[in-house]
């Protein structure tokens, strides 16, 4: 953490790591927009973007360029500072979550042990919840500062959705935490590597609940009410144009990437490649295998996110709230009680 910044090598190492993590998340998010359109196309018997570059691979660049050259409009009666702050906050909170994700084990590079995790704090999961709960502010500030009642209403909708599903998300994780006994993502991953099974085997219901809540937190379909264009007169970013709109849309994809990584880390063994014993591999090889495993799992999850988006229609708002409060929270509590009972009766040695 910053307190130890006297060690300049350490600080440099972390800075480089942060830069790499942010670049990777940006690139992945960029190509997630491309993948989204490709997946959408393929599921609708179309081809998707294929004109910009080979297989349309330059499409995200073209989209970004288009957004940059669009006219920048700031509503005349809006609060200018907050109007700009909104998308920036959305982007910032999307990026901040990546700090506690372990991207791989420790490796020896140039004579020092390099930890592929920006900050191994012992409350990693709580940190994620903290940042996720702040994600609401980008939406709310943006919606309010637009000085448009529809934006405001969409912002309130989005915020109450996020808060409702955060609850179920937290409850579904408590059952997992009972098994792991740690809040650190690094420890949770290492337990899964050493143990025989990934956490999804012990917590299938918890995984399902967490996955659904992650969909809702990322504002992905079928929970994408904050940006329902046709039936709810668009969302909190109604008054936004140009790259500020791009920030809002882009932060959604970064959120999706990060939350898929978190699901992979918590439930699917993180950087643990199945059927491979990492301990036998050398440092660099283990690192590469781990990265391939983590990113493979993440990309599969991102594909499932998109697959769901292009399969399911959007929820109505009351259905969404019903599902959250009357469906997921009782289920999460039930899961918690069952897990607690099992932990109490079988694993007394803990």
């Amino acid at each position: 953490m910053t307190l130890l910044a006297f060690d300049w090598g350490f600080a440099l190492e972390k800075l480089v790591l942060i830069a790499i993590v942010i670049t990777v998340s940006l690139v992945v998010a960029m190509y997630a927009t491309y993948a989204e359109r490709k997946v959408a196309g393929f599921m609708q018997d179309r081809l998707g973007p294929n004109r910009a570059g080979p297989f349309g691979l330059l499409q995200p660049l073209a989209d970004g360029l288009k957004l940059f050259f669009k006219e920048e409009i700031i509503p005349s009666n809006s609060n200018k500072f907050l109007f700009i702050l909104g998308p920036c906050l959305a982007m910032l909170t999307a990026m901040m979550t990546s700090a506690v994700i372990p991207w791989g084990g420790k490796v020896e590079l140039g004579g020092r042990m390099v930890d592929l995790q920006v900050a191994d704090i012992n409350i990693g999961i709580l940190y994620i919840f903290g940042v996720v709960s702040l994600g609401v502010y980008g939406m709310m500030i943006g919606g309010w500062a637009s000085n448009n009642k529809y934006s405001l209403m969409a912002a309130l909708r989005g915020a109450s959705q996020a808060i409702s599903y955060e609850l179920a998300m937290g409850l579904s994780l408590i059952a997992l935490l009972m098994l792991t006994g740690s809040l650190s993502l690094r420890t949770i991953t290492e337990q899964q590597i050493q143990g025989n099974w990934w956490n999804i085997v012990y917590q299938p219901l918890g995984f399902l609940l967490f996955f659904i809540c992650a969909l809702a937190e990322c504002n992905r379909a079928p929970f994408d009410l904050p940006e329902a264009e046709s039936e709810l007169n668009m969302g909190y970013h109604q008054e936004y144009s140009s790259m500020k709109l791009g920030f809002f849309l882009f932060s959604e994809y970064i959120n999706m990437f990060i939350s898929c990584t978190i699901i992979a880390t918590l439930f699917l063994g993180g950087y643990d490649m199945p059927f491979v014993d990492e301990a036998k591999l050398s440092g660099i090889a283990a690192l590469i295998v781990g990265l391939v495993a983590l990113f493979g799992k993440t990309f599969i999850l991102i594909f499932i996110f998109m697959w769901i988006r292009w399969t399911l229609p959007r929820f109505r708002y009351d259905q969404l709230m019903n599902l959250g409060w009357k469906g997921l929270i009782p289920l999460a509590l039930f899961n918690m009680v069952i897990t607690g009972a099992i932990v109490l009766f079988t694993m007394k040695a803990h």
């Binding site: 409350i123 709580l126 903290g130 709960s133 702040l134 502010y137 808060i163």
Partner: peptide, 14 residues
Amino acid sequence: AIVNIIVYAGAIMV
């Protein structure tokens, strides 16, 4: 620190 953020900044202030 983190609970302060989750509870106060993340929920009550919203």
